[in-house]
Design a protein around this nucleic acid. Structure first.
Length: 956
RNA sequence: GCGGGAGUGGCGGAAUGGCAGACGCGCGGCGCUUAGGACGCCGUGUCUUCGGACGUAGGGGUUCAAGUCCCCUCUCCCGCACCA
C-alpha cells in the first residue's frame, strides 16, 4: 500500500511526481535553512533585527503544544495541528504580520527514564537522539519554525529558569486583601512591624528563629506539607490529583493509587482559584474546555454553620449553652434549608468523631442505627474498617445504596435548638468542605436516600409545586416550616439566614472549592531538581539565583524504588537520594560555609510546559526569563480589558485541565510579581481533532498489519483470512501506524500537508485513509500542469488577460480563502483552490494567464509551500515567496453581473430566472411571476417574497 | 446520574433560516493505450409510471421557506462522578 512505485515509462518527463516533489522539497528546505527565512525579529536583544521585512509590522504569536520526543517518532496523526499552525502562520506572514511560530520539546518524562532503567542508557542520550529524529521529521514536512528559537525543557539553560520560577513562587505569599502574590519579604516586614499578628499572639520578636521560619514557610506559594497524597507503589512515586483516574488508578501505567500521609511539596494554586475561574470568561477558548476548568475548580458558595454538640455524659441543656462540647462546623450551599436539618453526617475520618462517641448507646437507640454493635465505639471502628476496605470503584458503585452508622452523639440545631443525631457515612467526603454536613432530606436527594434507609424524619422547607410527586425537592419555591424564613425565595432566605447566623456567631458566608493544592514533587530521576536545600533545622532554604541551574547529577541507577502494586505500607524513595555526594553539600548561603542536604525529589512533568510560551520570546536571554520589552510586544494586553497572551494556541483537548490550569497559574504568579505584562498565557485556544485509524484482529484477537488488509465483499481479510475491524488510536502495538516519512516518500510533503488539511475541519476527529491521499496529489499535479508543460518543462504562463469568468472566479476564491483562514477552516479553503484549479485546467488554451497563475500559486503556498516556491521561482521571481503579499480580492469583481434566482411556488422550485445583478426588486418579481405563470395556472399569488440576490418565493 | 458535544450519500465532509450533498475518495462509462497503470472528459442521494415524488437519526412545531430555530425521543463521543 505504501511502497514506492516506479514511475511507468510513459509518464511525461516533467510531471509533478513524488520523485520530483521530493527533489523540490529538499531543495527549498535547504534554501529556507540557509537563509533563516522564518526567523521573526524581536524588539530588543540578540534576536532584534530592525531591517527585517516585518520588523515594524503588527505581531502574531502562533504556538503549538510541543511534543514529548518519544522513541517511536511521529505518526501521521501527530502533525495535524502542527500543519494547521504552519499553514496559518505562513498565511499571516504573507498577509503582513510579524509572525512568531516556534517549536520545542517537552523532554523530561517517564518513557525515557523507564528505558534508562531497562537498558542503562542515560535518558539524556536517548532523549536527545529522539529530539534530532523529531526535528528531521518536522523539517521533512516543511514546517516553517523560527530557526533561532528551538527549546527543550531538559536543557540546563532552560531548566535553570524553571528553577528560577520555582524560587519566585517559593519566595512569595498570597496577599488575600490585595488579591495577588507578593514577595515573602513583605510578609516578614508585616510581622516584624506588628501589622500582622502571629497565630498565638506573641510578638514576632519573641519567636525563635525556627518558629519564625515555620510561620513564614506556612504562607509560601510553594511549601512542604504532610498531607494525604496519592501514593502509587507500582510507579514508586506520588501523583497529582489530576493524574489519578476516577477509579483510583494511575493515569500512566494503570497501577492502584493509595491515599497516604506523606511530606511533599505543594503549590498553593487554591489561592488563585477565583482568578483562574473568573479570568476564563473573556478568553477565546472552546466553551467545553472552559466548562471543564470551571468544574475542576468547582467553586460553590454557601455558608459555614456551627452546630453545638453534646459531649459524652453531658445533658442536652448543657450542650445547648455556649462553650459546651465541641462545635461541629458544616459547609452547606443551602443554609436556607437549616430548619429541615434532621440529622448530621460526618465523614468517617472526621477528627471530631472520636471525641464525640459516648461509651454506650443512648437510651432507646434504634437497633438499625447501631449496625448491630454493642457500643458506639465498636460500631464506628467497624464502619471505618468497612469503608477503608472499599475501593473507589466499589464506593461509587454503591453510591445509590447509602450506608452509615450512628455515633451515639447528638448535635443542636442553632436555629431552633432541636437535638439531632450525628451519623458517620461514607457519602460524606473528608476532603470536601468541612467533612461534615447538616442533612436536609427534604431538599437533598442523597440525604433523602439515607433518611429512608435509617428511618429519619423528613421536613420540607421549600414548598414544591402541586404537580411535584418526587422525593427530595431541589427546585425553586417559597420557604415553609422555617419560622422567620417562611415565604421567602431561596436566594432571599439564604441572605436572611446568613445574616441571622453571623449576628449570633453561629456561622458565616463561605465559598469552597473542589480544587486542591497542586502536589508538586515526584520521586523520579528524569526531571528538574528543586533549587532547595535543607539546613540543620530540617527547614527548606531556597538557593540564590547565582547557584542556578542545579544540575541533575549523574547516577548509576535511574529507578525509583518501586514496590508491588498493592503494597500500601511502602514509602517513596527518590533516585537522587542515593547520590550521597550530591545530596550532602557544603555551601555559603550568606552566613559562612555550612553543610546542607539537597532536596531529592524532582519536579513533575508539567513544570517545563508551565512557562514555555515565555521562553520562546527570548530564548537566548541569560539575564532574565524574558526581556520585558519582548514580552510586552509578543504577549502584552492590547487594551486595558485584555488579558494578553498567545494569539493562537493549538493542541489536544486532553490537556483541558492539567497543563492549561498549571500554566495559567504560573503565568499569573509571574504577572503578580511584576515580571510580565500579560495575566493569561493563551488568549485564543484551539483544540485540533485526532486522526484515528482502523486496526484489524485475526480470529485469535492478535493484531495483523493494517496495510496488508484487503476489503472483501462485506468484510475484511488478511492474506485470505477473515479479520475483524476496530477503530481507534494509531499505535505500534495495533500494527496500524502510518508515518509522515512514508507519506512524504510516496507522495511528497506538500501532498501530505494538503491531504491532512483537506480531510475535514481541524477540530474534528477523522479516520486516516491512505488511499485518499492521491486526491491531494492530483490537485497539486493540476496546479503544476497549469504552469509547467509536462512534456517540455517550459513555462506555460502567458501574459494575456484571463477570460471574464475565470477572473471573477479567481476573485471569489481569493475572498473565500481569506475568509476561511482566520477561523482555521482549511478544508473549505483547499476546496476553493481546487475549484479554481479545475476551472483553469478546463479552460485549457495556449497557456495560463499570469493574472490567475500568480495568485493561485501564492494562495497554494501556505498549504503546499515547496511546490509554490518552485513555481513562483519558475515564473520569474527571485528569492522566497514567504514574504510576498497574499492576494487581495477586487471588490468590483465579487459582484456578479447577473443573478439566477430560483423561483419557488408553494415552497417548491418551479423555475429559474436570470436578471441583471442590479435589477430592482420589482423587476425580479415580475420576471419570476412570468416564469412560473403556468404553475400558477391563473391563481393569484397571495404573497411574493423577493430575497435580494437569493431567491423568489411565491405563496399561493 | 449530572454536564457538554455530535448524528447529512458507500466513505471523509460542504451549506449568513433561502436551489441539500461544495471539494475529495470510491464507484460506473467514455477517450488515450498492445495491455495495465497514470492522465483527461462525463456520470454518481433514493424511488420513479420519466411528469415528478421523497430525502439531513426518529416524531412534533414555528416559517412563504428548516440540515440550520423551538419541544420530545433515540444513538454515539467527551468530561465529572455521592463535591453537601
Amino acid at each position: 500500500m505504501t511502497q514506492v512505485t516506479q514511475p511507468p515509462a510513459d509518464v511525461p518527463p516533467h510531471r509533478y511526481t513524488a520523485e520530483l516533489a521530493n527533489e523540490i522539497e529538499a531543495r527549498w528546505q535547504q534554501y529556507w535553512a540557509e537563509h533563516d527565512t522564518f526567523r521573526a525579529p524581536n524588539p530588543v536583544g540578540p534576536l532584534a533585527e530592525p531591517t527585517h521585512p516585518r520588523a515594524n509590522a503588527p505581531k502574531l504569536y502562533v504556538h503549538d503544544m510541543f511534543p514529548y520526543p518519544s522513541g517511536e517518532g511521529l505518526h501521521v496523526g501527530h502533525p495535524l495541528g502542527y500543519i494547521g499552525t504552519d499553514v496559518y502562520s505562513r498565511y499571516q506572514r504573507m498577509a503582513g504580520y510579524n509572525v512568531l511560530h516556534p517549536m520545542g520539546f517537552d523532554a523530561f518524562g517517564l518513557p525515557a527514564e523507564l528505558y534508562a532503567v531497562q537498558t542503562g542508557t542515560h535518558p539524556r542520550i536517548t532523549t536527545e537522539a529522539n529530539i534530532e529524529r523529531f526535528k528531521a521529521q518536522l523539517r521533512r514536512m516543511g514546517m516553517a519554525y523560527d530557526p533561532k528559537r528551538w527549546i527543550a525543557t531538559i536543557d540546563p539553560g532552560y531548566y535553570r529558569w524553571t528553577q528560577w520560577i520555582f524560587l519566585q513562587i517559593f519566595n512569595s505569599w498570597y496577599d488575600a486583601p490585595s488579591g495577588r502574590a507578593r514577595p515573602i519579604e513583605d510578609l516578614i516586614a508585616q510581622y516584624a512591624a506588628g501589622q500582622r499578628s502571629t497565630p498565638d499572639g506573641r510578638p514576632w520578636t519573641e519567636l525563635s528563629e525556627v518558629e519564625r521560619r515555620r510561620l513564614v514557610d506556612d504562607h509560601r506559594l510553594a511549601y512542604v506539607a504532610e498531607a494525604p497524597v496519592n501514593w502509587c507503589p507500582g510507579l514508586g512515586t506520588v501523583l497529582a490529583n489530576e493524574e489519578v483516574t476516577a477509579d483510583g488508578r494511575s493515569e500512566r501505567g494503570n497501577y492502584p493509587v493509595f491515599k497516604r500521609n506523606l511530606k511533599q511539596w505543594m503549590m498553593r494554586i487554591t489561592a488563585y482559584a477565583d482568578r483562574l475561574l473568573e479570568d476564563l470568561e473573556p478568553l477565546d477558548w472552546p466553551e467545553p474546555i472552559k466548562l471543564m476548568q470551571r468544574n475542576w475548580i468547582g467553586r460553590s458558595t454557601g455558608a459555614y454553620i456551627d452546630f453545638g454538640t453534646q459531649p459524652p455524659g453531658a445533658s442536652a441543656a448543657e450542650s445547648a449553652s455556649a462553650g459546651a462540647g465541641n462545635k461541629l462546623r458544616v459547609f452547606t450551599t443551602r443554609p436556607d434549608t437549616i430548619f429541615g436539618a434532621t440529622y448530621m453526617v460526618l465523614a468517617p475520618e472526621h477528627e471530631l468523631v472520636d471525641r464525640l462517641v459516648p461509651e454506650a448507646w443512648p437510651h432507646q437507640t434504634r437497633p438499625a442505627w447501631t449496625g448491630g454493635h454493642a457500643d458506639p465505639a465498636t460500631a464506628v471502628s467497624a464502619y471505618r474498617a468497612q469503608t477503608a476496605a472499599k475501593t473507589d470503584v466499589e464506593r461509587s458503585a454503591d453510591a445509590k445504596q447509602k450506608t452509615g452508622v450512628f455515633t451515639g452523639a447528638f448535635a443542636t440545631n442553632p436555629v431552633n435548638g432541636a437535638r439531632i443525631p450525628i451519623f458517620i457515612a461514607d457519602y460524606v467526603l473528608a476532603g470536601y468542605g468541612t467533612g461534615a454536613i447538616m442533612a436536609v432530606p427534604g431538599q437533598d436527594e442523597r440525604d433523602w436516600e439515607f433518611a429512608e434507609v435509617y428511618d429519619l424524619p423528613i421536613v420540607r422547607t421549600v414548598q414544591p409545586p402541586s404537580t411535584f410527586d418526587g422525593k427530595a425537592y431541589v427546585g425553586e419555591g417559597p420557604a415553609v416550616n422555617s419560622e422567620f424564613l417562611d415565604g421567602l425565595s431561596i436566594a432571599e432566605a439564604k441572605r436572611r439566614i446568613i445574616r441571622w447566623l453571623v449576628e449570633r456567631g453561629a456561622g458565616e458566608a463561605a465559598t469552597t472549592y473542589r480544587l486542591r493544592d497542586w502536589l508538586f514533587s515526584r520521586q523520579r530521576y528524569w526531571g528538574e531538581p528543586f533549587p532547595i536545600v535543607y539546613d540543620e533545622t530540617g527547614l527548606p532554604v531556597g538557593l540564590p539565583d547565582s547557584m542556578l541551574p542545579v544540575a541533575l547529577p549523574e547516577v548509576d541507577d535511574f529507578s525509583p524504588r518501586t514496590y508491588a502494586a498493592e503494597d500500601v505500607t511502602s514509602a517513596p524513595e527518590a533516585p537522587l537520594s542515593r547520590a550521597r555526594d550530591w545530596v550532602e553539600v557544603e555551601l555559603d548561603l550568606g552566613d559562612g560555609r555550612k553543610r546542607y542536604t539537597r532536596e531529592t525529589n524532582v519536579m513533575p512533568n508539567w513544570a517545563g510546559s508551565c512557562w514555555y510560551e515565555l521562553r520562546y520570546l527570548d530564548p537566548q536571554n541569560e539575564k532574565s526569563i524574558v526581556d520585558p520589552e519582548n514580552e510586552r510586544y509578543w504577549l502584552g494586553p492590547r487594551s486595558t480589558s485584555d488579558s494578553g497572551g498567545v494569539d493562537l494556541y493549538v493542541g489536544g483537548a486532553e490537556h483541558a485541565v492539567l497543563h492549561l490550569l498549571y500554566a495559567r497559574f504560573w503565568h499569573k504568579v509571574l504577572y503578580d510579581l511584576g515580571h510580565i505584562s500579560s495575566h493569561e498565557p493563551f488568549r485564543r485556544l484551539f483544540n485540533q481533532g485526532y486522526i484515528q485509524a482502523y486496526a484489524y484482529t485475526d480470529e485469535r484477537g492478535a493484531y495483523v498489519p493494517a496495510a496488508e488488509v484487503a476489503e472483501t465483499g462485506g468484510g475484511y481479510a488478511w492474506h485470505g483470512k477473515p479479520v475483524r475491524r476496530e477503530y481507534g488510536k494509531m499505535g505500534k502495538s495495533l500494527k496500524n501506524v502510518v508515518t509522515p516519512d512514508e507519506m512524504c516518500a510516496v507522495y511528497g510533503a506538500d501532498t501530505f500537508r494538503v491531504y491532512e488539511m483537506s480531510m475535514g475541519p481541524l477540530e474534528v476527529n477523522r479516520p486516516w485513509e491512505t488511499r485518499a491521499v492521491v486526491g491531494a496529489q492530483r490537485f497539486l499535479q493540476r496546479v503544476w500542469r497549469s504552469i509547467v508543460d509536462e512534456q517540455t518543462g517550459e513555462l506555460r504562463v502567458v501574459d494575456e488577460p484571463a477570460d471574464e469568468q475565470s477572473r471573477r472566479l479567481l476573485h471569489r476564491v481569493i475572498d473565500g480563502v481569506r475568509a476561511d483562514m482566520e477561523p482555521l477552516r482549511f478544508n473549505t479553503a483547499v476546496a476553493k483552490l481546487i475549484e479554481l484549479t479545475n476551472r483553469i485546467t478546463a479552460v485549457g488554451g495556449t497557456g495560463t494567464p499570469r493574472e490567475v497563475a500568480e495568485p493561485l500559486v501564492l494562495m497554494v503556498a501556505p498549504f503546499a509551500p515547496h511546490i509554490a516556491e518552485e513555481l513562483w521561482h519558475r515564473m520569474g521571481h527571485s528569492g522566497s515567496l514567504a514574504y510576498a503579499d497574499f492576494p487581495v480580492a477586487d471588490p468590483a469583481l465579487l459582484v456578479a453581473e447577473s443573478v439566477t434566482y430560483p423561483v419557488q411556488v408553494g415552497g417548491k422550485v418551479r423555475a429559474r430566472v436570470e436578471v441583471p445583478a442590479d435589477a430592482a426588486e420589482e423587476a425580479v418579481r415580475e420576471a419570476a411571476l412570468a416564469a412560473v405563470a403556468e404553475h400558477l395556472a391563473g391563481r393569484e399569488p397571495r404573497k411574493t417574497i423577493v430575497v435580494p440576490g437569493r431567491m423568489v418565493s411565491i405563496v399561493v
